[in-house]
Amino acid sequence: MEAVKQLVEKSLENDLSAFEQLINIYQGRVYTLSYQLTNSYADAQDLTQEVFIKAYYSLKGFRNEADFGTWLHKITVNMWLNTKRKRSIQNAVSLNEPISDGENEVYRDLAATDGDPEQSLESKEFNGLVRRALGELSREYQAVVILREIEGYSYEEMSLIMNCSLGTVKSRLNRARQVLKQQVIKLAKESGYVIPGTRKNRVTEEV
């Protein structure tokens, strides 16, 4: 952590090699969040670049009150919330959608599930469905869900990242969860999926 602080101080003195080291340390975190937000490798790369450019010029605003990575995530989220969607959703590559090689469909090996292969496939299909449903939420809702459920941030950290009160974070997250659940059920119904864990209860209710 001390090393990071020193690198930040050197970067403030226009030491680009120090800033490059900071990029090397944090690019994975920023790129991963960018990818979760944009659901597209190309957009994630653009966003990550812009985040570091902006971070470099805003370094004076970093006062070590937060982890540097969290500060970068704050820039990432705010930049994404305010940037026009460049590519259509059809062009986006979903994290959990199958990749077709012409004959077969394969899945990215993301869910480290073990046991019943059928259950594993079902789980992956369901994850893809959740990803699609998530992409259909408003950006504010997507952001809170991703920060909390995927990135695992605390409410306090989210409050810092999103520049809003704890109460706002909680209420926005609750609304986002509710809307996401409804969207998942709607998509599940349309595609005849059964939500894992509810095998006995066909999805015929709700929405």
């Binding site: 994975g28 599930t113 994850n127 869900v145 459920e149 995927i150 659940k181 939500i195 864990g197």
Partner: peptide, 21 residues
């Protein structure tokens, strides 16, 4: 409750680091 649990589990499974280019 099962729906929320299933969705949360799916979201957690998306938490895989993606390597920066």
């Amino acid at each position: 409750a099962e729906h929320f649990n299933a969705i949360s589990k799916a979201l957690r499974e998306m938490n895989s680091p993606v390597k920066a280019p």
